[in-house]
Structures are given as structure tokens and as C-alpha cells.
Simulated assay, not measured.
Amino acid sequence: MTATNRPASRLRAEGLTLSYDQRTVATDLTVDIPDHSFTVIIGPNACGKSTLLTALARMLKPRAGQVYLDGAAIASYRSREVARRLGLLPQTSTAPGGITVGDLVARGRYPHQGILKQWSAEDETAVVDAMRQTGVLELADRPVDDLSGGQRQRVWLSMVLAQQTSILLLDEPTTYLDIAHQVEVLDLCAELHAHKGHTVVAVLHDLNQACRYATHLIVMRPGGVIAAEGDPRNVMTAELVEDVFGLPCRIIPDPETGTPLMVPAAPKWYAPAGATSAETTGRTDAGDVPADGAAHDPAMAKTS
């Protein structure tokens, strides 16, 4: 099936113009989120990554263009119906004062409540499972105010998981987390995608984490322009990183996964431990062949 006759994805945006406080962030932005993908959006600061995500979640009304969810304009749905179909973890969240972890996570079940459907055993199971998945079950009776930034981030993620939506939008989900918990959260997202069929869309800053976990990568440049998108193995090149981020680098295979691994170029003044003055004198730019003409290790060569 070709791109021209492929069925439309569940979540897409066409011709968006997005603004904050009269400042236009993106113009004529079109994005198609592949179903059942782990899509990661990367780009330099202030390029419009989070703005795009909030528009996809109907938290920001476009000045022009339209977001479509399941074939209909997302603006045509009631809020509760949108919340049944997709969950959003925003970049910053504020919990009501004094609320406990368990009570906050339980709010993720709001879209499933109604006049004729009150709290049920199904709701209780969803909340407990969500807290267990993010490792905060033992914190259920603790006030959210008493938690560390990393613990709070996992609690907010629990609330989104408790919604039990098949589309998850996560704006910098690893914020405040140490490296071990970053990997745990991203592993969880990858599991939801791979084993449960969820469509996951995440904004990340770490390019290597993006390449390791994404099945579909969207690279944005300032002005809300899509610089490249597709499989990270095809998209992530040293030329792209330098063009979009202004960072000279090499791209090598990740020794664990084979996915692209970005290694920033060393500064000209850098001398490896134990190097002689003659060795450092012969160094030129980080990506160049040494002055003696010897080639670098092929495994460290740039890929195109």
C-alpha cells in the first residue's frame, strides 16, 4: 500500500498556524502520526515541539489549520470524549494542595465516570496497575507536595496511564528523572507501544534516547518547520545534527541496539589522557584525519 492510498492515521494535523501570546510559533505545519508507532519529536529549544504536542491534544487552538482525531476535527469532540481517546502528560503540572498520590492518579479515571457510571472495581484496578507500572504504588498515601520532582513526574505519568487511552502524548516525560528512572519510563513507553499497540508521541531532548526508542522520528527546526522525519536509522545523520542543532558530531551504531548514537565532536583543545604533546599537536578538527595520515577506526567514521 503506497503513501497516497494508505488509510489516514488516527491523529494528524494539517496546515497548522500556532501562536502563543501573539507570537507565531509555526506556520502551515502538517504532521501525520503513524498508528501504533512510538513517535519522538526532537529539535532545538523554542522550535515548537511542545506547542505542536499541545495542539495535537486540543490544549491549544490553532489560528489556522485543523487537528484530526479518528477522522473528525478534534474540535468537534466533547472534552470527555477526547480524554477517552488520548492522554496528555504536559511539560508542567500543578496538583491541588494536600492531595495524595492515590487520589491524583484516580483523577485519570474522570473520562470514564458519569451520572450512570460511578467508581468501580475496574477503575480501582486501572489506578493500581498504573501506579505499579511507574513504581509509585508504595507512595499512594503520601501527599504529592512531599515528593521529589522525579517522584512527582512518575505520579503524573501514572495518572495519564490510568486513563487507559490508546494514544499517549508525553511532553518531556523524563524531566526531573535520574538516568535510571529515565530509562525505566522510556522502557515502559516502548512496552506500551510494542506489546499493547499504543500510539506514543513524546517530546525528548536527548537525541540518543530518541533514536534508541523511536520507531518514527520527527525533527523540527525553528519556526515549526519539519526538517526530516522517518525511521531514525534513515533520518539521523551528522549533517542533519549540525544543520538543525549547530553541533558537529559523529553518528555511530549504538553497541547495545544498533540504533544511531550521536557523539559530539571534541573541542580542539581536548587532549585524551596520556596523550603526548606530539600527538595533540597533530590533531586538527575532531572529525579530520590526524596529521600523520593514519585513518580513524572505521567504526567511528561519519555516516551519511
Rank of each mutant, 00 (worst) to 15 (best):
D141R: 15
E256D: 12
Y270M: 11
L192P: 10
T237A: 12
A140D: 03
T27V: 13
I33M: 12
A64F: 04
A275I: 14
G282M: 11
V136W: 08
M300E: 08
G293K: 10
R12H: 00
S93Q: 10
I167F: 00
T134N: 00
A140T: 07
A294I: 07
G224N: 02
V144E: 07
D231E: 06
V25A: 15
D129R: 15
H195V: 08
L240W: 00
W156H: 09
R283A: 08
L116D: 06
T281Y: 04
N45A: 10
L177H: 00
T51Y: 08
S166F: 00
R78Y: 03
R132M: 10
A26S: 08
D231L: 13
R63P: 01
R10F: 00
V105M: 01
S148G: 09
R212D: 06
I42K: 04
G230N: 05
P111R: 15
T280L: 10
A46C: 02
G258I: 10
P260W: 00
Y77C: 03
D35Y: 03
A55C: 09
A3N: 07
I218H: 06
T215L: 04
T51S: 14
A273K: 12
H216L: 13
P232G: 08
G102Y: 02
K49H: 02
A180N: 12
R78I: 05
A140Y: 04
M262E: 10
D171C: 04
R58V: 03
S76T: 12
V105L: 09
G48T: 03
T24Y: 04
G224P: 01
R58I: 01
M131P: 13
D129Q: 13
H193M: 06
A238L: 02
A190N: 12
D206C: 14
I251F: 01
L16K: 11
M220D: 01
T51Q: 03
Q151C: 09
